[in-house]
Amino acid sequence: MSTVLGVDVGSRMTKAVVLDVEAAPGREILGCGKVYTHFDLADAARRAAAAALEDAGRGAGEVAYLSATGYGRYQVADRDLQITEMTCHARGAVELMPGVVSVIDVGAQNARAIRLAPSGRVLQFRMNDKCASGAGRFVERVAKALEIDLEEVSGLALRAEQPCEISSICAVLAESEVINHVTNGASIPDILQGTHVSISDRLASLVRQVGAEEPFALTGGVSRNEALVRALEERLEMRVQRHPLAEYAGALGAALLGRQRLHARAHAVPT
């Protein structure tokens, strides 16, 4: 029984999803894996793939098609195909949250707002590709400045009473601003939620540029950050759908599209 592997090489985390080629809809996902990317992107892809295959209880020899996405996709040497993040996140989001017509994928370094056709095809997208101003790395830097574990950020931010204003859009300069707030006696929850509000403003701007409508979904690692999701919902005045596997949406989309290609090739008329 063969499998399809989708690998999403992100700037912070590399994710992989293993699909059963022939399984019925809803039962295809056999396993997932996630590792820190570090500096060797090819190695990160190998480690994430190994983790996902182990989770699936499958061997590397059973992989019939490997599709890669993410900013490091060109470093996945054994790939059959590389696919842009936009197309993969759109496909993954539609699979996890059927019916969505708008998606925002917020990763560590980039955020992408996407408007979809019902088929999952990308109609329009916008991304912040210049810096980390609207992405997870921004939260990470602030957490580091406050000496807080990243996993604690959301819980603490939800306790905020009067979120601080973080006006800088530069993650590096925002760190100085955070230190000023600390110096002025602001509470850590207020500073953290101020950070989330600041990011949400920029995400909402991206979302509006593509004319996003509900049902609206959030994918990427930041989807686990409850406090940021609430801030975004307030800014957009829309409900933000999430899924436990939303972080794997890119890898899942890559795997699903890979499976589509595998089936197309199997049914192609030989020339």
Binding site: L81, T84, S119, R121, R261, A264
Partner: peptide, 14 residues
Amino acid sequence: AETFVESILFFSEE
């Protein structure tokens, strides 16, 4: 070029 590839591989009918 990549987007052109995707449009043909995955959405050519549309």
